[in-house]
Design a protein around this nucleic acid. Structure first.
Lengths: 341, 341
DNA sequence: CCATTTTTGATGTACGTAAATCAGATTTTT
DNA sequence: AAAAATCTGATTTACGTACATCAAAAATGG
């Protein structure tokens, strides 16, 4: 049987009340006594029964999820996953609330974070906009002892406890290698469609992509990045334009959202030329395009996993428990026609 | 607040004891009363607090993991993951025991399963050998009300509750498309190295591989399958032999274990020819080979995820709870040089 | 309609922990 | 050495469920 608080009390030769004071860092225990109890805890290998503890506390973890109010398919999917978690929340003793903030607006995000310092939830998850004011606001929360995890996009130099998202440099590198290999030894131009170079994940993907292209596929040259602001219409216009002007384009890498517009542009031009295309994020549109051959591969991060992982990590931090690292690593999914879920 | 048993009692106008009798299907409740209680449960949306219930029961889930005593890297990895789960088991109120049975031996496996009918663990996970006697033994366990999940390799036509493993047909198809695309339009022969055609996962991978090759890459022809019995030495010999005899080979698909031998053979021959190689299972050996260019892509199933998923599902079944399907889907990982974990 | 069986209610204990109260024992300060 | 402050112990209640016991009520059989 697992040792209980009673066993600690017996082993340390103190009363249950004292053990409780030590375990829950309540005041009123002399230093020597505290040490004695802590030794006993270590020696008999006591671990708190979290289920029983939460039952006793009547505790519910109140978490806040901050998501950008942006309306591309990926963010909709992320929102849906958070909602699914909310639906499950009573069963898991969690009380999850979402907070929408304007996309790409560091000031609004920082303000929202500061509001939470007063509310003091048991944990905060956010899709970070990579700016100093956001970093500082996050660090203030962390200093206040509130667990914080970033989701999808990380925050440079902050003290957030965890990042639930993919390695975007690796994602860009992978895209480059896939594109390069799929193109065989062909020479030509590669167009890159991004949302905005102001978001860290897009910057990193491009960085990885460019690095591998330069190292390994000298026959392919990257054209200046097209910034479509994750907007389908804008993406459509810009990509159509590029394809008309440059007929040396043989490959496309779409590293952000707004793929609906990209796909439309590709279909319009596909009559007279064959392009190899790698895109990010599996949505209804990209899935269809993959199946009909318009897109050759999709790189994806599973929003559901990210949300569940973020919640697990927040819970563990709130309980002072450790996490299984391998379990929380968010993987980069590569989808071809054949392995779609 | 979540409704409790007291709320049911109040809503149904019966006593706590009666509610308890209904909830735990104890005898001594009239049919009409039982219905009344069940209606109340549904209406107020009661869900049992599993943590409290287990605390009250003092319950620990005793699970048995049946793994084949085969000594390739993948099975070692699987074993290590089971051991890691065992190490965590006290914290999670589980008591996991492993049972080794000879590999590829349906009779031994069926016998082991039948032993468990007497022991009656709270759940059984097994790496299935696909044979009728194993299927029947599994079905007997299921009939006895014991949750059973298959791991890595599934069992045709059985009533197991869940399969924690990848879709092997999709894996084979994906391998074919990757190999085909990587080879550009080149024409030539493709060698396939398998463990044994008696295991379902290997059969299915080949099936998927052959299908896509035939449909989409008519320029590539598949040579008769080499069965290396997942043994490095045997694989080395057979592959070396094949490469010497047929110089039309431009691609290799290794769908089983024993890659150590394959890699050795490839390195010996690589001086005079360039091969495109797709292999299964990420191990130290295949990882090194991927990094040095001997292998071009690795398809992988994460043994840790499979083990944890199997345990989660067994627990849920034992508690009569539902599982999050998306969470339990085991994904096929595709690793290139750039996205190795 | 009484005896018997079946169904229901009332109540208590247990699981492992949290949290509170109050009394008693130490220490520290004056 | 007395007063005050600080520590420690003993005990109790609670969380939501499981499970057992005994008494009371209702339904059933003859």
């Amino acid at each position: 049987m697992r040792p209980t608080v009673h066993d600690i009390a017996a082993a340390a030769g103190v009363s249950l009340a004292t053990v409780d004071r030590v375990l829950n860092q309540r005041p009123g225990v002399r230093h020597v006594t505290r040490e004695k109890v802590e030794t006993a805890i270590r020696e008999i290998g006591y671990v708190r029964d979290v289920a029983a503890a939460n039952l006793a506390k009547g505790r519910t973890y109140s978490f806040v999820f901050i998501v950008p109010a942006s309306d591309n398919s990926f963010m909709h999917g992320l929102n849906a996953e958070v909602m699914a978690a909310v639906a499950r929340s009573p069963v898991e003793r969690t009380d999850i609330r979402t907070l929408e903030v304007p996309a790409f607006d560091p000031t609004a995000l920082a303000a929202a974070l500061d509001t939470l310092r007063i509310e003091r939830p048991a944990g905060v998850a956010l899709v970070a906009t990579d700016a100093p004011e956001v970093r500082d606001a996050v660090d203030r929360l962390v200093q206040d002892g509130i667990p914080v995890v970033t989701v999808v996009s990380d925050l440079t130099g902050s003290q957030r406890h965890h990042y639930a998202g993919v390695d975007n440099i690796a994602a860009g590198r992978t895209a480059a290698r896939l594109l390069g290999r799929f193109l065989g030894g062909a020479k030509g131009d590669v167009a890159v469609l991004a949302g905005s170079m102001l978001v860290r994940d897009h910057r990193e993907r491009l960085e990885g992509f460019a690095a591998v292209m330069a190292e390994e596929f000298p026959g392919l040259s990257i054209l200046p990045v097209i910034e479509g602001r994750d907007d389908p219409d804008m993406a459509h216009m810009l990509v159509s334009d590029a394809l008309s002007k440059r007929d040396g384009i043989i490959g496309v890498y779409s590293l952000g959202a707004g793929n609906r517009g990209l796909i439309r542009a590709l279909k319009e031009k596909s009559v007279d030329r064959a392009l190899t295309v790698i895109a990010h994020e599996l949505t209804d549109h990209t899935r269809t395009a993959l199946l009909d051959g318009t897109i050759d591969a999709i790189l994806n991060q599973d929003a559901g996993h990210e949300v569940r992982s973020a919640i697990r990590v927040l819970k563990a931090k709130a309980d002072g428990l450790s996490v299984i690292d391998a379990q929380e690593r968010i993987r980069l999914d590569i989808f071809l026609k054949d392995n779609l879920p």
